[in-house]
Design a protein around this nucleic acid. Structure first.
Length: 93
DNA sequence: GTTGAGCGTT
């Protein structure tokens, strides 16, 4: 079972590759998704990483949460399900 | 700078 991870307080210069490089150290990466504002195309300063194993995800969260990146302390946690749990966007059924 | 998106309907 894969697990989603939220990464906040990211430098706007952070990329998917940056995050993947960090997380793959702790476990198998299922997917990486840096969030961009779809209306402006600018980075929003946060991202999501999905890992193959929940145990690996938890390990990565512990290791990376509070880490200093570019002078900013990263916020790493299990992601909330605003996309995969409710249905998506507001319409459903 | 803080928890994604788009598709498209009950």
């Amino acid at each position: 079972m894969s697990k989603k991870i939220y990464i906040g307080n990211l430098p706007f210069s952070a990329t998917e590759q940056d995050l993947r490089g960090l997380f793959e150290t702790h476990g198998e990466i299922d997917s990486v998704n840096v969030i961009m504002d779809r209306e402006t195309g600018r980075a929003r300063g946060f991202a999501f990483v999905e890992m193959a194993e929940a145990s690996a995800a938890d390990n990565a969260i512990r290791a990376l949460d509070g880490s200093d990146m570019g002078g900013r302390s990263l916020r790493v946690n299990e992601a909330e399900d605003k996309r995969g749990g409710g249905g998506g966007g507001g319409y459903r059924r």
